[in-house]
Nucleic acid binder design. Structure first.
Lengths: 209, 209
DNA sequence: TCTTGTTATTGACATAACGTCAATAGACAC
DNA sequence: GTGTCTATTGACGTTATGTCAATAACAAGA
């Protein structure tokens, strides 16, 4: 029979939870968030649909958990970016290095990040986590750095740090999601390079003219 | 009685369709797309829920129709931007003028545009219309202009027109949605000015350094 | 004013996905 | 074995969707 899931098997809760997270991620590597149903995820675990609810409130909580796992990677840039050099040459290099690191994260986790961004449109709680747990934190970090660079004379004084940071962060997020967030369309190495180059160009021109 | 909708009234189809579009728009001025149900829209028209399906396939079609009404406004910029001056001073002015016009559209229709962007995450057809009917068309127009400016020596030669255009357009879209797309949070005139100024700064620095 | 045809409108139905809970049945301890 | 604990699930109620046959406005003609 096709629906035969075999005899029941008991797993340790920790194990089952990880299985669900893994199944969700695998699902999102192939199909968009809008098609992700609890049933669709659970068939990949060999567990029944109701079992899902023993571990997660709903699929939005799953996505939030996936974000926690990746969000940290994006903050690895924070301290680098913030502690970077005081002279223009250095500042530029540190910026580019941070952008590279961020881009790499998007290349690796693109579809999952895309799913999280989509889910933010579905659920108010995910939106909060995404906005204030990721975007706004990045904006704050970037704004703080811009503020320093303006005071240090590295960047033009008519730059509003907060707004400029928000615009640049949102651009980077959307542009990288557009490039690397679609399960079906994996860019070639050449295309990826063009994306990185373009991003760097806009950041550098904007901040260090 | 609160549920009493009074005696039935017959409208001309055209009239009913407009009523539904208006009700949808009114709804989206107050609440996000994720809370928009067919029922929630139809109570505002005095018609029953099933009546909705006589005029639209589903709520995604409604949103697509709303986009048609607004999309045209955003393309009013196209020809201006494309036919603009050949010297740097002029190019910059034309660009700023186009950005102002686009921003004004977002100020006026922010929540509806936000709803459409959200809906693109819900429905594949809306995503197509939004991407290829709006974003990609703007990208193509901007890319074409950048290409010209690079050849004319107005913009740096290491600019990849297509990619730069995409990054700038996506930034502008997301940043304006972030600023003006939330029903609950209307920015002050002062905040709006900062947004326009920041956008202009990034575009100008990127293209005309 | 009455009759009649057209069609805008709706009540009732079928479906899909959600979230809950009492009952079931692995696995380990003794 | 036997018993306990709890991971697991079948079955249920809910909400929103989309469809369709039946109903009832309205316009036109007598």
């Amino acid at each position: 029979m096709s629906g035969d899931r075999g005899p029941r098997r008991r797993r340790r809760p920790e194990e089952a939870e990880q299985a669900i997270l893994a199944a969700s991620r695998a699902f999102l590597e192939e199909r968009p968030f809008r098609e992700m149903t609890v049933e669709g995820v659970m068939v990949r675990t060999g567990l029944s649909r109701p079992a899902f609810y023993a571990y997660f409130r709903d699929r939005y909580e799953v996505v939030t958990r996936l974000l926690e796992g990746i969000g940290g990677l994006l903050f690895a840039l924070d301290w680098r970016w913030l502690s970077g050099g005081e002279i223009e040459e250095e500042a530029r290099d540190v910026l580019i290095e941070a952008l590279r690191a961020g881009s790499r994260t998007f290349v690796e986790y693109g579809p999952v990040l895309r799913a999280i961004a989509d889910a933010a449109g579905y659920d108010a709680k995910v939106e909060q986590v995404y906005r204030y747990g990721l975007i706004e934190r990045l904006v704050a970090a970037v704004a703080s750095r811009i503020s320093r660079d303006v005071k240090a004379g590295l960047s033009p004084t008519d730059l509003e740090p907060q707004e400029t940071a928000r615009a640049l962060v949102l651009m980077t997020e959307r542009y990288l999601l557009d490039a690397f967030g679609r399960p079906e369309r994996r860019p070639s190495r050449r295309e990826s390079a063009a994306v990185f180059h373009t991003l760097e160009g806009i950041w550098v021109r904007t901040l260090y003219g």
